[in-house]
Design a protein around this nucleic acid. Structure first.
Length: 248
DNA sequence: GGGCCGGCTTAAT
DNA sequence: AATTAAGCCGGCC
């Protein structure tokens, strides 16, 4: 029997796969409770990669990620609190497999505070493609991490909540649960008001911006467009940044 | 005010 | 590899 160093080396490799190698190529999954029912969540050594509700989790994951999938003992640290509170606090997200455009869109969406909403057109402007409004919708339609990346906080500029991976009814429920004033928003939309301004601060906001919510009714002025608000002497809020392509 | 195009990214062919 | 059609939208008739 020979002692070819190459063969013994190979045998060692076969017998002793380096620790963590499996984790690098395979994804793990868990089933966890979420705000709209049971969720399947897949994660890698890089972070959470996929959130799925309803049937067809495994085929959907395989089609999308083409990677082995194994059950995990426990959810990654921070996942449950993130789903409960909406705060990721250190939870790693694995966004490999998304395009540059989609990643920019998703990163922008992450900045929308709980209880607030922004239009699709605002996202488009923020990522530097003001005309790619519909493409933003497409990008959100394939958001691999719904709930964790709050694409339910992106609504249509006419005030309608719009579509959602888990259905617009779920979108509405999520927003209400977060304390978003959808009724107020609809009422304003009915009057063609999409921006609120304060004549004490001289600032215009999106209606759900926390600054807008503090405006005393007597000092509040509604506008249909930013241009009109600008003409009336208001400058865009630095917190909710309604301006984008226009005056900064 | 409900449709109809326009514009943009991506998945599929 | 090039082309096409579809998709969580907007804004103008």
């Amino acid at each position: 029997m020979t002692q070819d160093p190459l063969l013994t080396g190979l045998a060692a490799l076969a017998a002793d796969p380096p620790d963590g190698l499996l984790d690098r190529i395979a994804a793990r999954w868990v089933s966890v409770p979420g705000p709209i029912g049971e969720l399947r969540v897949a994660f890698t050594d890089q972070g959470v990669a996929y959130v799925h509700a309803g049937d067809g989790f495994t085929p959907a994951f395989r089609k999308r990620f083409a990677r082995p999938l194994l059950p995990a003992e426990r959810p990654p640290a921070g996942l449950l609190p993130a789903l409960r509170t909406g705060r990721l606090s250190g939870l790693r997200l694995d966004l490999r497999g998304t395009s540059d455009f989609q990643r920019e869109v998703l990163e922008t969406v992450r900045t929308i505070p709980r209880g607030e909403v922004r239009p699709y057109s605002w996202i488009a402007a923020r990522v530097g493609r003001p005309k790619a409004v519909r493409a933003v919708g497409t990008a959100l339609g394939t958001n691999p991490l719904p709930l964790l990346i709050p694409c339910h906080r992106v609504i249509r500029s006419d005030g309608v909540v719009g579509d959602y991976v888990f259905g617009s009814a779920a979108k509405e429920r999520l927003l209400l649960a977060e304390g978003t004033d959808l009724d107020g928003l609809r009422e304003l939309a009915g009057e063609r008001v999409f921006y609120l301004a304060s004549d004490t601060t001289g600032v215009v906001c999106f209606p759900t911006c926390h600054n807008a919510r503090r405006i005393t009714p007597r000092h509040r002025h509604g506008f249909r467009t930013l241009v009109q608000a600008g003409a009336a002497g208001y400058r865009p809020c630095r917190t909710c940044r309604p301006a984008q392509g226009l005056v900064g």
